[in-house]
Deep mutational scan, measured.
Amino acid sequence: HNLTITQGKLFFHYNPKLCLSEIHKMEEVSGTKGRQERNDIALKTNGDQASCENELLKFSYIRTSFDKILLRWEPYWPPDFRDLLGFMLFYKEAPYQNVTEFDGQDACGSNSWTVVDIDPPLRSNDPKSQNHPGWLMRGLKPWTQYAIFVKTLVTFSDERRTYGAKSDIIYVQTDATNPSVPLDPISVSNSSSQIILKWKPPSDPNGNITHYLVFWERQAEDSELFELDYCLKGLKLPSRTWSPPFESEDSQKHNQSEYEDSAGECCSCPKTDSQILKELEESSFRKTFEDYLHNVVFVPRKTSSGTGAEDPRPSRKRRSLGDVGNVTVAVPTVAAFPNTSSTSVPTSPEEHRPFEKVVNKESLVISGLRHFTGYRIELQACNQDTPEERCSVAAYVSARTMPEAKADDIVGPVTHEIFENNVVHLMWQEPKEPNGLIVLYEVSYRRYGDEELHLCVSRKHFALERGCRLRGLSPGNYSVRIRATSLAGNGSWTEPTYFYVTDYLDVPSNIA
């Protein structure tokens, strides 16, 4: 807008934040220059609390790290170098490059900038070799853009010569660093050979998330399962459950009422301010606690030095998902009996873990797994792929695949051998790939016309006998059925096997 004052003059007093240069501009645009008398524009009460600059400061050096910015700028000295009290560095987070010096300023003089007072450097006698002032900004957020400017702080001049310097606002972004852990990993099994893994992005990506790394490792069953005799009275049979499938998407929606109208769909109840505040506090606490764990609990591995020492970490090797089922080394339970199943799973520490690289999504279907087997899954978020990966501390989750139908069934015939004193040795093959492992066998036998009897055969007993022995049988026709019990439950009964026990007292003698 054009402003013209045809008559009258300007009068400025007691404006401590208004620089004289701005008042002189007002004289020019209003056409009143030359009308004012000496005392109409006070030299001592206008701009006496402001830094009124008329020179431009330029930054000469900028260096960044993930949490620091090192700045240096060209030296500046007023005509009387004693008038320079120091520099004021202003900075704040700036997602967009549209910041002005006066953003967030209120009537009390406060604003949204963080201000650092910096002492002037030592003055050199040689004007050509003056030290460049600077400042190291610490405690910054990774991968965050900051708006920065600097200006001088000078003393009051009796001659009211307006001098000083100020830089333009520059924008500097800190470097990326390792992201925080992925949030809320959930693993479920939808079949006997697959596990579905879902997660949420890290709360602090500290860069642009480029991919996720998912490692999985087959877990050995508890050692007590191999040692305890679950045929003993009072000892509860062990059981394991597989990871249940995901709930429906509708039930997972946030901010939804727990109660549904019987007449149909209901609208979600909005969260109160107290609920939102509580969630923010919980989120802040979780982030602080995660940072504490990362800094205190997890110790970084030592990389190899120039002395030739090897990095103890196993090298990563990509495998196809079809090879995942046989990740671990199978060892027989008892070496003397080769027909026992290889369900003991000690994992070799030198073995390469299978892994998958996930790009542009937060889910993965891990296939080719062994049925009813526990897996430990390790999830890392990465925001750099080359020249070397920059990934987060791992988040861990466990899951067990679903049982395989008929995996616990005894394959092959049940054979028998009759000894003296009416002892019958029953023999059968253990299931080759049971659900988890076989903890015991149930032997059901009966003599024709009598009630059915049951015998429990422990895992250890089966390994020693290759089956079991029935003792003290009365003469007669017998039928026997056997079924295995694994961590997933009972298998199917075998087809009945028949044998006849004679009275050993009636056996004919070869003595003449």
Rank of each mutant, 00 (worst) to 15 (best):
M402I: 13
V214L: 08
K361W: 06
P431C: 10
V327D: 11
G368I: 03
R319P: 11
S342P: 08
R447N: 09
P332Q: 13
E356S: 08
K302D: 15
H416Q: 09
S239K: 15
F226N: 13
T340C: 04
E290N: 04
N339M: 06
A488S: 07
Q275H: 12
H371Q: 11
P475H: 09
A394Y: 14
D229W: 03
S274I: 01
E221R: 12
K317V: 07
K361Q: 08
D273G: 06
P205R: 11
G467R: 09
L364M: 12
T485N: 12
V214D: 00
F298M: 14
R447T: 08
W216A: 05
S274R: 12
S367V: 11
T333G: 12
V397Q: 02
Y292M: 07
S344Q: 03
A405H: 14
R466W: 03
Y500K: 12
G412W: 04
S274E: 06
T497L: 12
P244K: 11
V424N: 00
F289N: 07
Q256W: 10
G234F: 14
P387A: 13
V296Q: 08
G436S: 03
E465N: 09
N360H: 11
R481L: 11
I418H: 04
S315V: 09
G207K: 01
R390T: 11
N490S: 11
P346L: 11
L235E: 07
K271T: 10
Q380T: 14
S268V: 10
N255Q: 12
I209N: 05
T210I: 15
Y500H: 11
Q256D: 10
G234Y: 05
Y500Q: 04
Y478W: 11
H352C: 09
E247A: 10
G436F: 10
Q256N: 04
T494S: 11
I418R: 06
L464G: 12
S398A: 12
E404A: 03
T502C: 08
F215S: 10
N421G: 03
E224L: 05
S458F: 01
V329D: 15
P312H: 11
A405T: 14
F499N: 00
C269E: 08
N326I: 08
D250P: 09
K361Y: 13
E356Q: 13
N383P: 02
Y292F: 07
F285G: 05
T401P: 03
N490D: 04
A330L: 02
L228T: 07
W493V: 04
G306F: 11
K302V: 06
E249R: 09
A488L: 06
E362A: 11
E356F: 10
T288M: 07
H211I: 06
L453C: 05
D273M: 09
C267T: 04
F355R: 05
L505M: 04
E442K: 12
R240F: 14
K271P: 05
K287R: 06
E417A: 14
N383E: 02
W216E: 03
L277C: 01
E265A: 14
K233M: 14
R447A: 11
N208Q: 15
S444V: 15
P354R: 10
T386V: 04
L455V: 11
E452P: 15
T347I: 12
S283M: 15
D311S: 15
E247T: 08
R483N: 03
T343P: 09
S458M: 06
E350S: 11
S239I: 05
P354G: 12
A484E: 04
E227T: 07
V457L: 14
V393Q: 02
D323R: 11
F226M: 09
V423K: 03
E290L: 13
P300D: 15
L440T: 03
Y498H: 12
N339W: 10
R481Y: 07
A399W: 02
S444N: 15
V439G: 08
E430M: 12
I276C: 03
T485V: 03
R400L: 04
V329Y: 11
L280T: 15
K278R: 09
F226K: 07
S341M: 13
D222G: 07
F289P: 06
E452T: 04
R400F: 12
P244A: 10
S320P: 06
V359E: 10
L470F: 04
L487I: 05
G234N: 08
R218M: 14
F372H: 13
